[in-house]
Amino acid sequence: MLPYRDTYLANNKAEGIAVCGVYCQNDSIHVGLYWNYGGEKMVIHFLNGNNIPVQPVEAPDFAAYLFNTITNFPEFLLPSISAFAELISQNKINGFQFNRAGGMYDGGKFTFSDGAYTGKTWPEKFVNCGVFVIALLNTYDFQLIDWDSWPNVDPLHLDFLSTWLRYYNIPVAEWPLYYNKTRAIRGKHILVSPSTQTHPSRYTETHQLAEELLSQLNP
């Protein structure tokens, strides 16, 4: 079982970076990225395209979060990623976008060659809290998961994707077009990925760990 915030902070005083997440319901875990650098202990988490807060880890909401240190992230990049995250949260970075094929995330990073994100409509489609964490780390050439090992969403278990498709008013007749372009990446996978034996984390092992965590959280 991963430690909750207070236990984690008591045992991890050194500067570093971690994935953190809170159990929501069913198999849903909301995740974010925590850093301890320069006297700051902050969390950034993607709520939606217009709301990507950076908050002190001491905030009451984070007491229920589980933490998992990313041990192999280059520590010398902490000043950059903490600055970058804060600027994104403050909406001061114009035109950050995900490398995507069409409206879908393809495992890439934030790029700045045009201002496509400024509109904040299409680009955040299918970007969830987990994808945001992956993309933020990918921007620093750090791969949390082995993207190619990840399966597409299973059309028989589409609850989370259906929610997004409905939210963005995608006609039901067009839903199958998205099934083969969306990876089955969930917050639960991101939260456990630093604990896998191989890095970047491959799907099979990550999924197994995620299911074990869920069974502990929701026995």
Binding site: Y37, E40, P79, S82, L87
Partner: peptide, 10 residues
């Protein structure tokens, strides 16, 4: 600070 310098670069 190094963090502020990084912000400046961005």
């Amino acid at each position: 600070s190094l963090k502020n310098k990084n912000k400046f670069v961005f």
